[in-house]
Design a protein around this nucleic acid. Structure first.
Lengths: 147, 147
DNA sequence: TGACGAGTATCAAAGCTTTGATAATGTGCT
DNA sequence: AGCACATTATCAAAGCTTTGATACTCGTCA
C-alpha cells in the first residue's frame, strides 16, 4: 500500500466520529431512540411539515434511508404524516406530543456529550477545528469529483 | 433544545466523516468493494492469520458485524478462513491472491482521497487536527462514562 | 396544450451494524 | 484436577444505509 497508515488522517476523523456516535447511542437509548431517529426528530422539531426528502437532505442520508426511519417512528407514534393540503404526492411530517417528549428526553442527555466537547476546547480551538474539518471536506469533495 | 445547533461540534465531525466515507465509497467501488470490506482487507494485508474478533477490534466494529463482512468476502473468494493449527475454535483469516489484487486496486484510488486531505493541510495543521480530534475523543469518552 | 425537468414517494435487493444470548476453547489460579 | 475468567465464534432479531428502478405531481417553457 502506497501511503503509510500513520499519515492517513481519515482514520483519525473516523475514530472521532465513531466515538461520538457510540456516546450518542448510549445517551439517546434510554429515551427509546436510535441516533438516526434522534437526528430526525431534532430536525423535525424546527421544521414542522417538512417533506421526507428534505428531511433526508438535512440529515445527510438518502430518501430511502429516511423512509425507513420515518416508518419506524410513525409506527411508534412519535411522528405523524399527513397529505399536503394542495400539493399532492407530498406527505407532511410532524412531531406528535409523544415524539416531542422523547426528543426532549434524548436531547437532555445528548447535549451533555456536545457540552463535553465544547468544554474541552477553547473558543479559538473550536473555530480552528471547524475550519480544518471544513477544509478537509472541500479537499475530499474535489478529489472525489476528479476520481 | 438547550444548546444551539451552531455550537454543536458533533455535526461538523459527522459531516466531515460522511463526506469522507462517501468519497471512499466512490473510490473503492470500481474494485468491487465496499468501504468496510476495503478496511477489512487493508488490516488483513498487514496481519495475516488474524482472528475475526481481533480484526473487528482493529476495524472498530463489533465481532458480529465483522462476521458478516468476512462471510461476504469469503463467498467471493477474497479471503480464506482455515482452522488454527493447534488452537481450536479459532479461524485464521488470510487474503487470497484475488483479495490482494482487489485491495491494491481499491487502495490505489482510495489513497488519492487521503492524499488530497494531506495536501490541503500543512504538516503543522495535520498535527493540530489530530490533536484536537484526540482531545474530543477523550472528552466524549469521559462524558459518556459519566452519563 | 403538450413536453420536459425537478422534486417526491415507494418497492426491492444487498449489505452493514448493533444488542442480546449461547456455546466452545484455552489460560491461569486453587 | 477442577474452576473461574477471557477470548472466540455463531445464531437471531431489529434497524440503518445504499444502489437501482418505477411512478406520480408540479412548474416551466415551447
Amino acid at each position: 500500500m502506497g501511503m503509510p497508515a500513520e499519515e492517513r488522517l481519515g482514520l483519525d476523523i473516523k475514530r472521532a466520529e465513531q466515538e461520538l456516535i457510540a456516546a450518542k447511542q448510549i445517551a439517546v437509548r434510554p429515551a427509546g431512540l436510535t441516533v438516526p431517529q434522534y437526528a430526525t426528530l431534532y430536525v423535525l422539531a424546527d421544521n414542522p411539515g417538512i417533506s421526507a426528502a428534505a428531511l433526508a437532505r438535512a440529515c445527510l442520508v438518502t430518501p430511502q434511508a429516511m423512509t425507513v426511519v420515518l416508518k419506524n417512528l410513525e409506527t411508534r407514534g412519535l411522528v405523524e404524516r399527513t397529505p399536503h393540503p394542495w400539493h399532492g404526492n407530498v406527505l407532511e411530517t410532524r412531531l406528535t406530543d409523544t415524539g416531542r417528549i422523547a426528543l426532549e428526553e434524548a436531547d437532555e442527555r445528548a447535549v451533555r456529550i456536545e457540552q463535553a466537547i465544547a468544554d474541552e476546547l477553547t473558543a479559538e480551538e473550536r473555530d480552528t477545528l471547524r475550519s480544518l474539518l471544513r477544509r478537509c471536506g472541500t479537499a475530499i469533495d474535489r478529489a472525489s469529483s476528479q476520481l
